[in-house]
């Protein structure tokens, strides 16, 4: 419950404060969003499975964002940025779908 509130507080704060993203980091924003979605849905699913762990959640998010960003950065340097971005989005997208399906099974038993 508090977790949902914290998320909402963050959204409102982001909307009101309008922090500026450094230009160099802007290309990584979409990837960071997908990685964050993955962490959030993974966390919700773990919670429903009864094995949620705060430390695990924090570490998984940070490492996801860093690895995804690093892959995209490397891809940009090698000239295959869009392809590697697609790869990252596909892998994280599969995980999001799988976790959302698990959440759905938990909530609706279907």
């Amino acid at each position: 419950m508090i977790a949902v509130l914290a998320l909402l507080v963050g959204v409102v704060a982001g909307a009101l404060l309008e922090p500026t993203v450094p230009l160099a980091l802007q290309p990584y924003l979409p990837i960071a969003v997908v990685a964050a979605l993955d962490a959030v849905f993974g966390g919700v699913r773990a919670k429903l499975d009864g094995i949620f762990d705060d430390k695990q959640f924090v570490i998984s998010f940070i490492s996801n964002v860093l690895v995804a960003g690093l892959i995209v950065y490397l891809g940009d340097q090698l000239g295959v940025g869009p392809q590697l971005s697609t790869g990252v989005v596909v892998v994280l997208g599969v995980r999001i779908f799988g976790n959302v399906a698990a959440i759905r099974r938990h909530l609706f038993r279907a």
Binding site: L7, A13, G14, L17, A32, V40, V58
Partner: peptide, 23 residues
């Protein structure tokens, strides 16, 4: 302590969503 860190991270994620949307 771990719980609070997780909440702070959630706030940060919320901000990330808002900023990305604005962008």
């Amino acid at each position: 302590g771990r719980r609070v860190v997780a909440w702070i991270l959630l706030v940060a994620i919320g901000m990330l969503f808002a900023v990305a949307y604005k962008q």
